[in-house]
Simulated assay, not measured.
Amino acid sequence: MSGTPRGSGGLRAVLFDMDGTLVETEQYWGEAMFELAASLGGRMSAEARAATVGSSMRRSMGILHADLGLVRSEEQLRADAAWVEDRTAQLLASGISWSPGARELLVAVREAGLRTALVTTTPRRLADIVLTTVRGDLGDDPFDVTVCGDEVPARKPDPAPYLQAMAALGVEAQECVVIEDSDAGVTAGLAAGAAVLGVPTVQEIPPAAGLVLRDGLVEVDVAALAAVLSEGSSTGVWA
């Protein structure tokens, strides 16, 4: 294992969530679910939509169906999930924007010599649409490792995706900062043993030990991430 990059304290790797954290694509999932709800004869509540953020597709469909008061068979659930994924893929293809501050942070992390991973619950086929845009914008691949929702034994809030990414990066949990916008993602990062920077958007994230909360990624730099790693050993606070 090589030396710690200069100016980063003990920080060796940064693990990014995708939807709502790195890129502003969370609204596409919401739009697809609202459209599905309408096709099923109902209207998904804002509260139910917020509860789906960061969740697996199966759990999201369960939340949607319960919100509409529907009982769906396993076959129907799978069909609904496939429809949402296909519709989201169409929306992603129409254009993808960075979350404020995310591009600048990712570039700074790479320039500092830190290891990087993208860890998302999104299936590979959809994540690749985002990654193609990100790579095209930056001119190279900014991630040493990418872990998608259909490539892990368990999805967030289980720590498995982050543990898999850390193993592939060759780093220890105490050398990592995870950046997440959802409660499920934060829970997964903390359970994996990493310090977590939470940047909630649609969904509220409760304070927790090991968690630092901010309003967004604007003006977050490598020094700020090193501070998150340090602060992560104490009770979660708003920075």
Score class of each variant (00 low, 15 high):
229 L>M: 07
200 P>R: 07
170 G>R: 01
187 T>G: 12
211 L>V: 07
224 A>G: 14
199 V>E: 02
185 G>V: 04
223 A>H: 08
186 V>I: 14
168 A>Q: 14
220 V>S: 04
172 E>T: 01
185 G>N: 04
206 P>D: 10
200 P>E: 04
185 G>R: 03
216 G>E: 10
196 V>F: 05
217 L>T: 02
195 A>E: 02
233 S>M: 10
220 V>A: 12
194 A>R: 03
177 V>E: 02
210 G>A: 12
183 D>G: 05
231 E>W: 08
214 R>W: 04
207 P>M: 12
200 P>S: 12
233 S>I: 09
185 G>T: 02
201 T>C: 07
183 D>Q: 11
178 V>E: 07
180 E>W: 13
195 A>C: 09
221 D>V: 10
201 T>Y: 02
210 G>W: 00
189 G>Q: 06
168 A>N: 06
216 G>Y: 05
171 V>W: 03
168 A>M: 15
204 E>P: 13
165 A>Q: 04
231 E>R: 11
170 G>M: 05
163 L>K: 01
214 R>K: 00
175 E>G: 05
208 A>W: 13
208 A>S: 15
198 G>T: 00
170 G>S: 03
187 T>R: 15
188 A>Y: 08
169 L>E: 03
171 V>T: 08
176 C>W: 09
213 L>D: 00
214 R>L: 11
182 S>A: 15
194 A>E: 08
183 D>M: 13
190 L>R: 12
172 E>V: 09
228 V>C: 03
231 E>D: 06
211 L>A: 03
168 A>K: 15
193 G>M: 06
232 G>R: 00
209 A>G: 06
207 P>R: 09
228 V>L: 07
233 S>L: 13
172 E>N: 07
220 V>D: 03
184 A>S: 14
206 P>I: 13
172 E>Y: 07
234 S>I: 00
189 G>N: 01
190 L>G: 13
167 A>P: 10
233 S>Q: 14
183 D>L: 15
187 T>E: 15
223 A>F: 00
195 A>R: 01
202 V>Q: 03
220 V>L: 12
169 L>K: 03
210 G>S: 01
215 D>V: 09
216 G>H: 09
174 Q>R: 14
191 A>F: 07
170 G>D: 09
219 E>N: 15
191 A>L: 03
214 R>Y: 00
184 A>V: 08
206 P>Q: 07
202 V>S: 13
192 A>H: 01
192 A>Y: 04
228 V>K: 03
174 Q>T: 12
173 A>S: 15
203 Q>A: 04
168 A>S: 14
199 V>N: 01
229 L>C: 05
223 A>V: 05
230 S>K: 08
201 T>G: 10
221 D>Y: 00
212 V>G: 03
169 L>Q: 10
169 L>T: 09
177 V>I: 10
166 M>F: 09
190 L>Y: 13
171 V>L: 03
199 V>K: 02
166 M>K: 05
197 L>P: 05
204 E>G: 10
168 A>D: 12
224 A>Q: 11
219 E>C: 07
208 A>F: 14
204 E>K: 15
178 V>Q: 08
184 A>G: 01
219 E>V: 03
196 V>D: 08
174 Q>L: 08
